[in-house]
Design a protein around this nucleic acid. Structure first.
Length: 300
DNA sequence: AGCCAGGCCCTCC
DNA sequence: GGAGGGCCTGGC
């Protein structure tokens, strides 16, 4: 099925920029063509390809006609990128990052999977996070298939709560298992309503997320940005930290420093949110992607 | 071999 | 309140 779409979109950058962890680029032999990505969203195996006419996709077990609006929503196709660029393009640094990755979109993930994924991200790396999320799905999620290729749905909070910490450790989550297990229990019991946080203010959502074990400011901002509609969220990880210090140190020293005059992660986020304003999260993703591809060698 | 990877939490000061 | 160390594990 085709979702007609003629506007800016860089699908590979969008799916491979570390926002979500279950997308795989398929090779020719298994997909019968170039440019296909396969992931699992909304309890479906979904394959996507972008061409001049729009987004071609297939899915199972649900009907393509039912999945089409969810895919469009997931890819944030209604975001007006040109308007967002006008909003965040406040200097030549971020401008150059925008030029390099025009069409990179934030995605609107399912909050529960997003939360678990970023709890798993602590002191880890993208490849390992991907392995963790895939292993969690294989062990505790329902099998689903498309054209004979089997994947697994991401398990529900109940399913993960029943699994408990021990089996999660056995999957190689390490110390993150002791956070994922209780958070699953809390979400399953309704102590936190993740979808309700979409309607909450940024500050209320942040407070609710940080109350969860294994969730600090960085993880909470990732969850808010990638799944809870908080476009002003601004997660400061090591890459964004490096990018900001490299490009904005003078401004940070003037406005993002703490009482003792030092620039800290804690001070960087509010500064950046004030500097890039309503769509700071988009600026964040471009800074992150730019710096991550650039690698560590050039930082000093 | 030792260090680091897209942090968080706890302890001490 | 904030600086410092520990934490699972895999990869270089």
């Amino acid at each position: 099925m085709l979702i007609p779409f003629q506007q800016l979109l860089d699908l590979p950058a969008t799916l491979e920029s570390g926002q979500a962890f279950r997308w795989k680029r398929l090779d020719d032999s298994s997909s019968g063509g170039d440019g296909w990505y396969e992931g699992v969203i909304f309890n479906n195996v979904v394959r996507l390809r972008h061409d001049a006419e729009g987004i071609e996709f297939r899915c199972g077990p649900d009907e393509e006609s039912a999945m089409a609006p969810l895919v469009a929503d997931y890819l944030r196709l209604s975001d007006d990128l040109d308007a967002i660029y006008r909003s965040i393009n406040v200097d030549e640094k971020i401008g150059s990052a925008i030029d390099r990755f025009r069409g990179l979109r934030l995605i609107r993930q399912e909050p529960w999977e997003c939360l678990v994924s970023f709890i798993c991200s602590a002191n880890s790396n993208i490849r390992r996070i991907s392995t963790n999320v895939e292993d969690i799905s294989k062990s505790f999620g329902r099998p689903i298939a498309l054209d004979g290729r089997e994947r697994h749905a991401f398990p529900s909070p109940q399913e993960l709560a029943e699994a408990g910490e021990g089996p999660l450790r056995e999957l190689g989550l390490g110390f993150r298992a002791k956070y994922v297990a209780p958070v699953a229990r809390m979400v399953a019991d309704g102590e936190v309503d993740l979808f309700a946080l979409r309607e909450a203010s940024y500050n209320d959502a942040l407070e609710a997320l940080i109350a969860l074990p294994g969730v600090g400011d960085k993880v909470a901002n990732c969850v808010m940005l990638f799944s809870l509609e908080k476009m002003e969220a601004f997660p400061v990880d090591v890459w964004v930290d490096r990018a900001l210090r490299d490009w904005y140190l003078d401004r940070l020293n003037a406005n993002g420093a703490d009482a003792s005059g030092k620039v800290t992660k804690k001070g960087m986020r509010p500064w950046a949110q004030g500097y890039f304003e309503a769509y700071a999260g988009y600026a964040n993703q471009y800074l992150f992607h730019d710096r991550r591809l650039q690698g560590r060698a050039t930082t000093s």
